[in-house]
């Protein structure tokens, strides 16, 4: 199956001379959830903005559903829903009116039954007649999502959707994202909450300084780049790391009660057996041990740091 979005050598240089995207190429598969991670100013929003038609690209091309986003914008934009990073609403409009308005912009007749269901799904039904300026920030965020879904898009862009929202809304939002994915919607999200990307995404693309550093299945990425850490709780406190352990990538915790050993899960030998044998030979006894897998956040930080 061909990708639903194909980005080829996309570049963007703003009038200020700032190069936001440097020949970015990326395929988004139909029906997947792709998390686009990157620090502030990495080019995430520029990339999304070009695809939806808010920013003109300097070079390269993008196709959505096999059609060019410039030549065939009517077809491509009709497939896309966008929840932008900034909450921008028409203060004096009611919730119902603003969502119906968006649906109209996408060339569709009013569908009160669908809008009613949408508002109920987003816990907005009892606010349908209220003006947007009377809503809380979280409620406005829900309205933005309802607007993006008003025309039943096949592709949904969520640009930092959970920035500044409370726990309840965040949970609701991810539940909604899962339901949308189940119904076949392709979702591209940018987020600073890497744990969320880790939980929800199928694939992860990391972008930094306008370049895609890595695109990988989430599980594969974590397997490839993942490191594990072994914690050994000592029976007796150590003040310094024994000389015999200097050959290992091991550190002593600040309080001296724990040895911390970091190893690569993909390495031919993890070195654990040798470490434990050395400890035994040195007379260092331990009470307990535990291991942790590095998170997507750790991987992300490492990637961005390495690249810098």
């Amino acid at each position: 199956m061909s990708p639903i979005i194909q980005i080829e050598s996309l570049s963007k240089i703003y009038d200020t001379g700032f190069e936001a995207l440097k020949s970015v190429s990326l395929d988004v598969e139909d029906g997947e959830i792709l998390a686009l991670l990157g620090p502030n100013g990495a080019g995430k929003t520029t990339l999304i903005s070009i695809i939806v038609g808010l920013v003109n690209a300097t070079g390269g091309s993008v196709t959505v559903d096999g059609r060019d986003i410039v030549d065939d914008y009517r077809h491509t934009r009709a497939l896309i829903g966008l929840v932008p990073q900034e909450i921008t609403t028409d203060a004096f409009e009611t919730v119902w009116a603003t969502i119906t308005h968006t649906r109209g912009l996408f060339g569709l007749a009013a569908d009160p039954a669908y809008i009613e269901q949408l508002l109920k799904d987003l816990s907005l039904w009892d606010k349908k007649g209220e003006k947007l300026m009377t809503l809380s920030g979280g409620m406005k965020r829900r309205v933005m999502i309802a607007k993006a879904l008003s025309h039943k898009p096949r592709i949904l862009f969520l640009d930092e959707p959970t920035a500044g929202v409370d726990v309840e809304l965040r949970k609701d939002m991810w539940a909604l994202v899962r339901r949308l994915k189940d119904s076949g919607v392709t979702i591209i999200l940018t987020t600073h909450y890497i744990d969320e990307a880790e939980e929800i995404a199928d694939r992860v693309a990391v972008i930094n300084h306008g370049e895609i550093i890595v695109v990988e299945e989430k599980a594969e990425l974590m397997r490839k780049l993942g490191q594990k850490t072994l914690f050994l709780d000592l029976q007796e406190r150590l003040t310094v790391l024994p000389e015999s352990l200097s050959a290992f990538n091991v550190a002593l915790s600040e309080d001296g009660n724990q040895l911390i050993y970091t190893y690569d899960t993909n390495a031919e030998r993890t070195g654990i057996t040798r470490l434990l044998a050395t400890l035994n030979d040195s007379g260092i006894r331990f009470r307990d041990l535990s291991t942790t897998q590095s998170s997507l956040e750790d991987i992300f930080v490492k990637l961005v740091r390495d690249e810098a």
Binding site: G53, L54, Y73, A78, T102, F106
Partner: peptide, 8 residues
Amino acid sequence: YEVLSAPV
């Protein structure tokens, strides 16, 4: 943004 990203 809404008008500019719509098929209009």
